[in-house]
């Protein structure tokens, strides 16, 4: 009896051992200084998300350079707050790192019960990537330009609707910023993730959305969506003809998604510096750049101080928008 159970386990074991051949571990016996053990790179979102892909592209390269395995661990939940909180409270010994995004700063302003402070509980290591959002509409609305959109929205306030993958996402906040800067009134229809919002847009249920440019472009090319502008301060190579909101005269309309590498507060400066220099090299590698590009991301890096400044700037900016427009949650 026991034998048959054992045999089954053995069979399972053999196949899975084969499976593990696909995976390459870089565990090498470390020596003296940091790092002497496996480093955990926490991703506060589920596998397959943009952030997860960044981590999984960078982790093996970082491991190779540090001579220690860097393992990606998904600690998803509560719009990233569970993972971020775990990192904020982790030992600052350089063995727990995380990938964060500007969503963290938006959420911290939006939810009362965020258990950590995104500015003071982390030491930024470096920026990781920029993502570009594109303002798009459906052909049915007949809107041809941003100016047209503003005119139509002003003519009938609250009539046009826009979707987002959820409250406090960059897509949502970008539109709130747009509303604030242009004095328009658009009705927000939140979704759980962007897939549902895109479906309802294609089927004509909602009119507008800020959508990641690489996701939106295929629909624009197929004539199912109409692109109006990009939210970043510079035009995007994927759609060089598409103007930026700033070019169109909407001052301060600068909305992007960024991703960054962070460590818990108190992580020794030499470790942060070492990680920063390794990440800078990795993020400049052509294969990393092209892997990111396929995800609609532009690999980028900066110094710890620059990253801290960027976080601070965004934090205050979103706090203002959220307060001014009475956006609330919880």
């Amino acid at each position: 009896m026991l034998r048959s159970l054992f045999r089954i386990l053995l069979a399972a074991l053999a196949t899975l051992a084969a499976a593990s051949l696909c995976q390459v571990t870089y565990a090498q016996s470390g020596g003296r200084a940091w790092p002497t053990q496996t480093i955990r790179l926490i991703v506060p979102f589920t596998p397959g998300t943009g952030m997860d892909t960044i981590a999984r592209i960078v982790a093996p390269k970082l491991g190779e350079r540090l001579g220690q395995a860097v393992i990606v661990e998904n600690k998803a939940g509560a719009s990233g707050n569970i993972g971020a909180d775990a990192v904020a409270k982790a030992a600052p010994d350089g063995y727990t790192l995380m990938v964060g995004a500007n969503t963290m700063l938006m959420a911290a302003n939006l939810y009362k019960s965020v258990p950590f402070n995104p500015l003071t509980d982390f030491v930024p290591i470096s920026l990781g990537a920029w993502g570009t959002l594109m303002l798009a509409t459906i052909p049915k609305t007949g809107i041809v330009s941003v100016a047209d959109l503003i005119a139509k929205a002003k003519a009938s306030p609250g009539k046009l609707t826009y979707g987002s993958p959820g409250i406090g996402t960059p897509h949502h906040m970008a539109m709130e910023l747009f509303k604030d800067l242009t004095g328009t009134d658009l009705l927000h229809i939140p979704y759980k993730g962007s897939a549902g919002a895109v479906v309802d847009m294609l089927s004509g249920s909602i009119d507008l959305m800020f959508i990641p440019i690489h996701v939106g472009m295929p629909y624009v090319k197929a004539g199912k969506l109409k692109a109006l502008a990009v939210g970043s301060p510079k035009r995007h190579p994927m759609a060089p003809d598409l103007p930026t909101l700033q070019e169109l005269g909407i001052k301060g309309a600068e909305v992007d998604m960024w991703y960054a590498f962070l460590a818990p507060k108190g992580t020794p400066a030499p470790i942060v510096a070492r990680l920063n220099s390794e990440l800078r090299t990795i993020l400049a590698l052509p294969e990393v750049k092209s892997a990111f590009e396929k995800q609609g991301l532009d690999a980028a890096s900066n110094s710890s101080a620059e990253m801290a400044a960027l976080m601070k700037k965004d934090y205050t900016r979103w706090a203002l928008i959220i307060k001014k427009n009475n956006i609330s949650a919880d």
């Binding site: 589920t46 596998p47 397959g48 998300t49 997860d52 892909t53 993730g193 897939a195 895109v198 479906v199 294609l202 690489h214 996701v215 472009m217 295929p218 629909y219 090319k221 197929a222 199912k224 892997a291 396929k294 995800q295 609609g296």
Partner: peptide, 27 residues
Amino acid sequence: TLGIPSNPVMALMVGAMTIHGIQPGPQ
């Protein structure tokens, strides 16, 4: 046909496609 993932597994398939530079969509 539409590039729309209907469940988390399909969302991962989208991820797998984009890693290879294929943007799922109507084309």
